[in-house]
Design a protein around this nucleic acid. Sequence first.
DNA 1: TTGCTAACTTGACATGGTGTAAACTTGACG
DNA 2: CGTCAAGTTTACACCATGTCAAGTTAGCAA
Lengths: 187, 187
Amino acid sequence: MSSENPNTQTRILDAAWTLLETGGSKVRMSDIAKAAGVSRQAVYLHFASRAELLIATTRHIDAVKDVDARLAASRAATSGLERLDHYIDAWCGYIPEIYGVGRALMAMQDSDEDARDAWVNRMNAMHHGCVAVAKMLADEDKLRPGLSVSHAADLLAMLLSVRGWEDLVTTRGWSQSDYIEEMKTLA
Amino acid sequence: MSSENPNTQTRILDAAWTLLETGGSKVRMSDIAKAAGVSRQAVYLHFASRAELLIATTRHIDAVKDVDARLAASRAATSGLERLDHYIDAWCGYIPEIYGVGRALMAMQDSDEDARDAWVNRMNAMHHGCVAVAKMLADEDKLRPGLSVSHAADLLAMLLSVRGWEDLVTTRGWSQSDYIEEMKTLA
DNA sequence: TTGCTAACTTGACATGGTGTAAACTTGACG
DNA sequence: CGTCAAGTTTACACCATGTCAAGTTAGCAA
């Protein structure tokens, strides 16, 4: 019963989550409402707009999957290479979990400023992690000569981007482990 | 007069081109019509849908910029590395030219099947070029040991993807030459 | 001149999804 | 018993795409 009937708000978030995970990114507000067993308007009682609902969904996923803890684990590494490895593991594990919502959010970037900001912030956070890794590598002289820390970070961020993952894993048919291995080798 | 008054069709394509190059990807049919000096309905006399217009615009750009000729030049190279270089040059020169329309087309991928197909075809053509390059490199034993031709091609295609370019050049502020150099080094 | 046709214009309308507004129901709690 | 919060139903405004029908206009042919 308690698992059957949590917060309406939570039920909406869960519904959005599962729908976006499976049903492409053209999920409508009414679809989500129906899946949550609630009227379309009720959704607007909890979330002001589609963009806001999507953003809240990403936060919800983060909370449920305890993403912070996993990313924090990668910060514990002592050597630069070890940290690079852990960071790639953590991030690559994260991508498929938010991929559904991420797609929908990316698709809204042109039409909705909030959605754009939210996604850009996420990517900036990831980029920040790349900078930290690049710095550690630079301190240990592990970067290719002539490659600046910022360029190295940018490059790593691009390799690990959701789009890159999408390209290789979903359209070229790589396995998740292929991807992780290849990224580690390249980086 | 003749440069002032070509085909209405051509005027529409040119209008779409310039608008998409500058004005983000939320360009409406009415915007394009206005820019072409024509009524909104007239656009539908020439193109059945927004997707079709966008696709026709990419073809129009290809024709005007003589893209085929430039890509053919990269096929002339004799050694694998040389060919890789030329291919990267040609492709990286191409990206910014179609970037405007490309963005709009990508944004339609979820809602319109024709748009999706058209863009996927383009990307497949690019991927095909990558396979050719990877094959030449493999024949000369220039690939990293353990890296298959198909994986190498996939990787190269991902590095050179429009999204990757977008990430580095437009959001991280790299210069076009930074990008080309870095891609050559990495590849 | 008349008349036909292709290209374009004008204006109206259907569709589909988002978001807003208002009035009604229902259950819990003091 | 009253009231407050959370939902429901119904209706509507908005906006872009795409469709339809009737009218205009230039050019060309008989």
